[in-house]
Amino acid sequence: MVNPLIGIHAFFGEFAVFAFLWVFVEMFNPNEKSIERAKTAALLGVIFIFASWIVGGASYVFFYGPEVKPLIKAGPESWAHSIFMETKEHVFLFLPILSILALTTLRTFDEELIRNEKARIGLMILAGLIVLIGLSMAGMGFLISSGARSALEAGVGLGA
């Protein structure tokens, strides 16, 4: 069976994307209630990103590194690790920082967001950026698992 940590990592990551997409949508036409909902969504997003960070880190250090990485590197799609996993693991580090920044912007402006269009656009840029980087993480995750699958299909590791 595939290590469940990778599934839990993806679950938290995807829900973090949904949470910040929710923040983005709430900013189109904000009122007191939508600001409160956005604050809840942003807090959930930060929690999900940190959970994804910790679970993904444990999965990467204790499972992916020793078992999957050598398999991909010996397989026909070694670029899946060398380019996409390397990019993913480092660009991911932007997300906890950007999510705290988005949550702080939201909580600092609070109901001022209803009247301040620039603050609203600034927050939407941050939330949209988190969504786009999050979606790129999911896309790179697909390429990495394709790399592992192609290595297994090529029989890598079977003769060891």
Binding site: L98, L101, T105, F109, N116, E117, K118, A119, I121, G122, L123, M124, I125, L126, G128, L129
Partner: peptide
Amino acid sequence: FDAEKWGKITA
């Protein structure tokens, strides 16, 4: 504070 400008710079 110009949140739009800084949002763009950070993005």
